[in-house]
């Protein structure tokens, strides 16, 4: 018997189990890197390896979050909507690990180094601003804040688009000799944002013709 995910969501047990599945899966990257660190399998520069790893996974979860709406519209996956907040919070979670591991493993919490990085390095500044944005979205992601902010909530959460662009810039600014990987991520982001632009344009023309 083949059970679709949509059907699975009709029962309470189905919803529960799927929620747990999607809650636990995003912890796998953390488990993987923790295991590698524990078995001293991170090479000569474990700090850099870990910071890069968390950075890449932040971007992946951000893209996953941004993919919810297009997937719902294109494939009719209405059930996906209920996990968007969780994906968003995992984006923030990995962004915090990225920043914490940078401050701890690379800068050793040395005040002089932190001050210099945050005042002089454009790619660090851009990444930090993107992180601040994610924090604001994370804090206001609760039911209480949605209610309190009313229609401003949506306006605030449109911030995810500039945040995504800043995160992409932060990544692209690190290019030294090859832009293949960054280009791959940029194309995915282009599709995710491009879908919204196309959708918005179509809707506008429909409204005008009505």
């Amino acid at each position: 018997m083949v059970l679709s995910i949509a059907e699975l969501h009709r029962s309470k047990v189905g919803r529960r189990s799927f929620w747990w599945l999607l809650f636990l899966l995003p912890l796998l990257p953390l488990a993987y890197i923790a295991e590698a660190a524990y078995s001293l399998d991170l090479g000569a520069d474990p700090a850099q390896t870990i910071v890069t790893f968390f950075g890449i996974w932040t971007l992946r979860f951000l893209f996953l979050t941004l993919a919810v709406t297009p997937c719902r519209r294109l494939f009719g996956w209405g059930w996906l909507q209920r996990y968007r907040r969780m994906f968003g919070l995992y984006t923030l979670f990995y962004a915090c690990l990225h920043l914490l591991s940078f401050a701890t493993f690379i800068l050793g919490w040395r005040a002089d180094l932190i001050a210099r990085e945050l005042s002089e390095r454009p790619y660090i500044i851009v990444g930090f601003i993107a992180w601040l944005g994610l924090v604001a979205l994370g804090i206001t992601s609760t039911r209480g804040w949605v209610r309190r902010l009313g229609r401003h909530w949506q306006q605030l959460h449109y911030l995810v688009y500039p945040i995504a662009l800043l995160a992409m810039l932060h990544f692209a600014w690190l290019i030294r000799a090859g832009f293949g990987e960054v280009l791959g991520y940029a194309l995915v982001l282009l599709v995710l944002l491009g879908h919204r632009v196309v959708y918005w344009l179509k809707r506008r023309s429909r409204v005008q013709h009505a």
């Binding site: 520069d45 474990p46 700090a47 701890t104 690379i106 050793g108 210099r116 990085e117 390095r121 690190l174």
Partner: peptide
Amino acid sequence: RWSQATERRLPSSLFNPNQ
């Protein structure tokens, strides 16, 4: 794009960045 004032002497370990 980055400071040259300090360096990490490798291998560094996680809780001693060796800056």
